[in-house]
């Protein structure tokens, strides 16, 4: 025979455990939220619609200068210029005209 105290303990234990687990879960989720809050200062999530709109907007082929056939080397530019009887327009610098901004 089990004692009444043992029976009460057996019935109460799962409830107690789930309560402890609940507190732990809540705390863990609260901690996660505080981490989230700290590391993600609230920019809006990128939506599919926004992705489509921005991807369309940010296309290099739409830039006016991209309509020009830029030769990637001086030697190739010289060969083409000789073939087509055209002068060469050369853009040079420490940075690349087609790089960055």
């Amino acid at each position: 025979m089990y004692s009444p105290r043992y029976i009460v303990w057996c019935l109460a234990l799962p409830l107690l455990m789930s309560a402890v687990a609940g507190v732990a879960t809540n705390r863990s989720s609260a901690d996660d939220k505080s981490v989230e809050k700290k590391t993600e200062p609230g920019h809006a999530k990128l939506t599919t619609g926004e992705f489509e709109k921005l991807h369309k907007q940010l296309q290099i082929k739409d830039q006016p200068w991209a309509a020009i056939s830029w030769q990637p080397s001086i030697t190739e530019a010289r060969k083409l210029a000789a073939k087509e009887n055209k002068p060469i327009l050369l853009f040079t610098g420490n940075g690349h005209l087609l790089a960055c901004g």
């Binding site: 080397s73 530019a77 055209k86 002068p87 060469i88 050369l90 610098g93 005209l97 087609l98």
Partner: peptide
Amino acid sequence: VELVRTQFVACAVRTGW
């Protein structure tokens, strides 16, 4: 853009490096 595209051979190079 049109003049460069049609009348020149354009070339861009990074001479500084």
